[in-house]
């Protein structure tokens, strides 16, 4: 029988205390939509689940200069945020395509990236938006760029005793347009076959700065740096974007694999097609907001 204890502290201090008390025998749980599935599938559970759901003041979306998203913010909150929809559309799209309304009502952004699945739908958008992650532990707080957060499939730099308290997106992202595409067979309740997030900034019609992020393209969500470098200073033209797509889909940027959900060649094709499409969409969105 799968047996575990469940604690629901009301403060971060209490969370840290419990984490220290139980050490590796404890696990954090937020919405539980990854944790509970994993317990069921592996028939193994930590001795104690420490719920973060008592930390209600960590559920927020704010802008004061930077964008601040609390560690207990659900995807549903992101999906219903006009701020996000208008100013960080890639993240809005990533969050609003997760699972179903029922899942998004409980599942959190922090959970999505702490679980660190190669397919995490918000990971691409966060990479494309230069997000930074705040981790708080008993010894204080540190900030990690999202580009350094993922260390492998289902692995991150987060220490056992740390809680992700905030995701922060720098103010300069205001000047970028962004878009996220999730390729999947169904419109809901599906993991992406591949995910493509693009953000960019234009200087007249040249691309002055861009981010291209891919999920299910490597063991972790990644940035396609080579494709971004190629775009720098180039005009928004079909041939240019197509070449960026090709570079992004090539081994220069990703390590695509065959899996049950999709073959490598097909994933490459989708990346090639959607890097330009998302770049165009991102560019359109800049014009709209400025």
């Amino acid at each position: 029988m799968i047996d575990y204890d469940y604690k629901r502290p009301d403060s971060l201090e209490e969370v840290f205390r419990l984490l220290q008390e139980y050490g590796p025998r404890a696990g954090l749980i937020a919405g539980g939509t990854d944790v509970m599935v994993k317990i069921r599938n592996t028939k193994k559970a930590p001795e104690v689940l420490i719920s973060l759901r008592g930390l209600t003041d960590l559920a927020y979306i704010r802008k004061n200069g930077h964008y601040h998203i609390g560690g207990l913010t659900t995807h549903r909150m992101l999906e219903q945020s006009e701020l996000l929809q208008n100013e960080l559309p890639a993240l809005y799209e990533g969050a609003s395509r997760i699972g179903s309304v029922q899942v998004r009502n409980v599942a959190t952004l922090a959970g999505n990236i702490c679980n660190a699945a190669p397919s995490a739908d918000t990971a691409g958008p966060l990479l494309a938006l230069d997000a930074r992650v705040t981790l708080q532990g008993p010894d204080g707080e540190r900030r990690v760029p999202i580009t350094e957060f993922f260390t492998g499939a289902y692995r991150t730099v987060r220490k056992q005793t740390e809680v992700l308290t905030e995701i922060n997106i720098p103010a300069h992202m205001e000047q970028f347009g962004s878009a996220y595409w999730k390729q999947s067979r169904r419109k809901a309740m599906n993991l992406p076959i591949v995910g493509i997030a693009v953000s960019l900034r234009l200087d007249n019609d040249t691309i002055s700065d861009s981010r291209i992020a891919l999920t299910v393209a490597a063991p972790t969500p990644i940035r396609a740096y080579k494709a971004e470098e190629f775009l720098a200073g180039k005009p928004m033209e079909d041939a240019v974007l197509a070449e960026a797509g090709r570079i992004a889909a090539s081994p220069e940027c990703c390590t695509l694999r065959d899996s049950l959900r999709g073959e490598a060649w097909y994933r490459a094709r989708i990346i090639e097609v959607y890097v330009p499409r998302m770049a165009r969409l991102a560019a359109e969105r800049i014009k709209k907001t400025h």
């Binding site: 169904r186 419109k187 809901a188 309740m189 599906n190 993991l191 049950l260």
Partner: peptide, 23 residues
């Protein structure tokens, strides 16, 4: 149903692509 060497590889609604209400 993806059957590989006799084994069902996608025994859940996560991977078996039955359409949803959104589709």
């Amino acid at each position: 149903i993806k059957v590989r060497n006799g084994r069902v590889m996608n025994p859940s609604f996560r991977d078996y692509q039955m359409l949803t209400a959104m589709d």
